[in-house]
Design a protein around this nucleic acid. Structure first.
Lengths: 141, 141
DNA sequence: TTTGTTGCAAAGGGTTTGCAGGAGA
DNA sequence: TCTCCTGCAAACCCTTTGCAACAAA
C-alpha cells in the first residue's frame, strides 16, 4: 500500500547526481525500513563496504532537498530520517515500536481557513506530526 | 489577546522550585518576546548580571517539563523556545519576521478519527506547526 | 542550617569541513 | 579526461556534566 505510492527509485541521474553505490545504498536502506532511522542506523545498515558517516550526512541532506526523505525530530530529541515522496503528506508514528505510516490527506484545509480569519495570518505551509499506537502494539499491549 | 490567555507568572514556588533571579529573568525574557528565541538569545537578553549558559539550559528544560515553555525546531534546524501555557495549542509562525501567535483550537478532531479508521492506529498525540505571513509582513511585502 | 542552584571549566557527542585520492560519465 | 563524490581526520559547536561556592528558605 505505502510501497505502491512510493515512486520507483528516485532518479539520481534526473536530479543531476552521479549514481554511486553509496547513494543507492542509502536509498535502499530508507526504502526497506518501515520506521525512521538515525544517521548512524542508516550507516550501519549499508551494504558491505560500509561508507563513511560524512557521506551519509551529505547525501541525506541532498535527498531531503529533493523531497526523497524527510527529517523528523522525535520527542527524544534525536533526528531521524524517513523516505517519502514529495506530495503533501504526514507521518503517523507508533510510540511503542516506532513503525510509521504515511498519511496522504490531512483534512486540515477547512480549519486552516478558519484560523487565517482569526489570526490575520496567511498560512502557507504546515507540518503535522501524529503519534499513537499501531494495531499490532495495541493488540499486544 | 495572547497575553490574557497566558497565566500570571508561572509559580516557581508552587512547582517546588526556588525563586532565583536567574529563573525570573528567563521567564521574563520568554514572556517579553513575541517570537521563538534560541538559548543564546535568551541568555543575551537576561537582565544585568548575565547568568551562565548552563543555567539557561537547565532551567529551560524544567520549564518545558512544567509546560511553561515549548521547544520548536525551525526549518533551519535550530532549536528555539517560546513561552506557552499547558493547554493544548499550536504555534503559528510568520516566515518573514518570526513573530508567532498561539492558536487555541486546531479543529483536527474529526480528521483524526477518520485517520484512525484508515490506518488502524490509535492516535494519542499530535503536534501541528503552522507557517505563513503575518498581517504586517503581508502588507509590507 | 539545610539543600537546591549557580558558575566555571571541562567533557561529550553529533555534525560539518578540508583536502587528497578515487570513480562516474 | 573532467568533475563530482568519497573517505579520513580534524575541527566545530551546541549541550551536558562535575564540583565547589552560594543563596533561598
Amino acid at each position: 500500500m505505502a510501497d505502491s505510492a512510493f515512486p520507483a527509485t528516485p532518479s539520481l541521474r534526473a536530479a543531476g547526481m552521479r549514481q554511486t553505490p553509496q547513494r543507492e545504498g542509502i536509498l535502499r536502506v530508507l526504502q526497506d525500513s518501515d520506521r525512521p532511522l538515525t544517521v548512524e542506523e542508516i550507516w550501519e545498515r549499508m551494504p558491505e563496504r560500509r561508507s563513511g558517516l560524512p557521506t551519509v550526512y551529505r547525501n541525506l541532506e541532498r535527498f531531503v532537498q529533493e523531497g526523497w526523505a524527510e527529517s523528523i525530530l522525535g520527542s527524544d530529541q534525536v533526528m531521524r530520517f524517513v523516505r517519502c515522496d514529495s506530495r503533501h503528506h504526514h507521518h503517523l508514528q507508533c510510540e511503542r515500536c516506532g513503525r510509521t505510516a504515511e498519511v496522504d490527506a490531512c483534512g486540515l484545509e477547512a480549519s486552516l481557513r478558519h484560523l487565517e480569519e482569526l489570526s490575520g495570518f496567511t498560512i502557507t505551509r504546515h507540518q503535522l506530526l501524529l503519534f499513537g499506537l499501531c494495531r499490532a502494539c495495541r493488540a499486544g499491549a
